[in-house]
Design a protein around this nucleic acid. Structure first.
Lengths: 341, 341
DNA sequence: ATAGTTGGCTAAACCGGTTCAGTTGGCGGT
DNA sequence: ACCGCCAACTGAACCGGTTTAGCCAACTAT
């Protein structure tokens, strides 16, 4: 019941050795007699000694924490459940390692870079996750310069010294288009994500390629910022035309759900008059009507893999790229053959 | 360009004073000559000295970080944008204070308590936010015992030594019921949240009270865990009866949106055959069809207020309760007068 | 003139670990 | 019997701040 803090000095005294040796024993390093090591560890356990994270931080210059900086506009962040799931995955790994996650949510890219700088300056984290990769991402040179280990979620477009943990999303888009094409659709449109984001353009390119591969005319594409509101606007624009697409492939689920709302509002039936597909397989998909055909991305698994990779990089100074199972099409009820007019 | 770290010793030497005095000057404490203080601060600035957070942590036994532990089942967490917005609000305050947010997402309440213990044992945080209050919440005595400052999001039911930052949600529920009653509804049902959560039962009680106040018969209530799936099931149950409610008040928006899906599926028109209201005003509300009448809660504002209060508590040892503007009804298109059969 | 205060400052201990140069003792080799 | 070597271990410095005891000079009070 001794509420007093027990320090390494107490352990050393009780075990009749020096502080240094206790430290060696704890970090099981060579130079400690087998028997002595056992005795030290036993004493440490008896005394209930937990080495002080703060003291350790000061002398090792490490923080035993990982960082995640999120720069998204509030609306997109709020409607996209990617991060909660991703973080849950990350935590499931970190908890066992006695490491913590430091989270920053910032309003813009300028602040984002500043945040990385101060995380490093304050020594808050030993490594970071890089999400929402952008073209020619400024964070990569910055982190290289700062010497902070990182893992990228997806493969960046330029050179990168960091391991990439990737879920290939192009097969999902390709499968969506092929599925719609096989149902008989020819006028398929795409509501694309932000062109600044790598996965925004990648999905867009996959869409174009899949259309060509299916022998279809180039599909109409509308750019958005991935927000629900933008998805709604884009849909309204597409459906307001004299000759409408018979199917729309959305770059994420929130926009697809907004699209569903617009179709309902305009009296356009889904899937009879219009087929739609989403991307991400958020929980809502199963429960809107009709249930949304979409592409599954497993963010929690991604989080686990990213955390594991980042830890490995930090421990061993090197980690291999990881390719997770590609996103795959989940067929539900929001797509059907087009009506012959 | 000197990449070398500059320490307090460098500043002291350059300014021709002792380390201790530099420390005093920095934390502007008495005992430093006015002129000397200016000189020290000037030298510090010239040298670009940033005091080491780690060293400071060790000697002051503080971490300059705040904690948030979230224990929610993954499905609820993913579909509810409360936390992303709340966190964004918290960050907007912390960033200016050079403090960080340590986030933990845990699978169950057992792990949750364990997480608080280890956050304290490791000295990771100086204070925490308590969200999703439960009845007789075990976290309150635990944190009291651990001596960790905290702020509760909402007023707990038992005794609590911690300041509460509250958004009263009962007026929102009351307004919803009254609005529906004024439209002419008499059979109003409630899809309630988890009875373990304070706001779950509070909204439920507010519903019952509002029904009574409107002179209506007791409304049917179905309990859920706040998840989209449970909202869907509850709706199916309510609408599968011979005598159906003509309106449903949902305890959160995701469930209301799921309810909308079920109604569509069953061919029940909203709002002609069924009126529904949600709670939280998530972005989706505006973009589903019909747009969801709901109650707005402003989580980002809540986050700012909670962070401010927690910081004040930690600095001054005391902070007053804060009552934010009550949640209010946002009227959109998902409610209308009932049809006379 | 003398004792008592007080403001400004220094030196050193301290927080609790890690690390490294150096000491000791036991063992094998010749 | 002597040397060399290595494994085991100690002592002290170190990480970079904060804090306390105490010193000195100047100023007040009697």
């Amino acid at each position: 019941m001794s509420a007093e803090k027990v320090t390494i000095a107490d352990v050393a005294r009780t075990a009749g050795v020096s502080k240094g040796l206790v430290s060696f024993a704890l970090n099981n390093r060579p130079g400690v007699g087998a028997e002595t090591r056992v005795r030290i560890l036993q004493v440490a356990q008896d005394l209930g000694w937990k080495p002080s994270l703060r003291a350790r931080s000061l002398s090792t210059q490490r923080s035993f924490a990982l960082g995640l900086v999120i720069a998204r506009n509030p609306e997109v962040l709020a409607s996209d459940p990617f991060f909660p799931s991703f973080i849950a995955g990350v935590e499931s790994i970190l908890a066992a390692e006695r490491r913590a996650l430091v989270l920053s949510v910032v309003p813009d890219e300028e602040t984002e870079l500043q945040t990385y700088r101060s995380l490093v300056a304050d020594g808050r984290v030993d490594g970071v996750f890089l999400s929402d990769l952008r073209h020619n991402d400024a964070r990569i040179p910055l982190l290289t310069e700062l010497g902070l280990p990182a893992v990228t979620l997806g493969r960046p477009d330029g050179d990168s010294p960091f391991p990439a943990v990737t879920v290939d999303d192009t097969p999902g888009v390709t499968a969506s288009v092929r599925y719609l094409a096989e149902l008989g659709h020819r006028r398929i449109a795409h509501v694309a994500g932000s062109p600044n984001l790598l996965h925004g353009t990648r999905r867009r390119e996959a869409f174009a390629a899949a259309m060509a591969a299916a022998g279809l005319p180039e599909g109409q594409t509308v750019e958005t910022d991935f927000s629900v509101g933008a998805g709604s606007d884009a849909t309204r624009q597409l459906l307001g035309q004299a000759i409408r697409p018979t199917a729309i492939v959305y770059a994420n689920d929130p926009m697809a759900i907004a699209g569903l709302g617009v179709a309902h509002e305009l009296g356009i039936r889904v899937p009879e008059d219009l087929s739609i597909t989403g991307f991400d397989d958020i929980d809502f998909c199963r429960y809107v009507f009709p249930p949304l055909t979409t592409v599954s991305a497993a963010p929690a698994v991604w989080g686990r893999a990213a955390a594991t990779t980042l830890l490995q990089l930090m421990e061993h100074g090197h980690a291999d790229d990881v390719d997770l199972p590609a996103a795959r099409l989940i067929i539900r009820g929001s797509a059907a053959p087009p009506l012959r007019p």
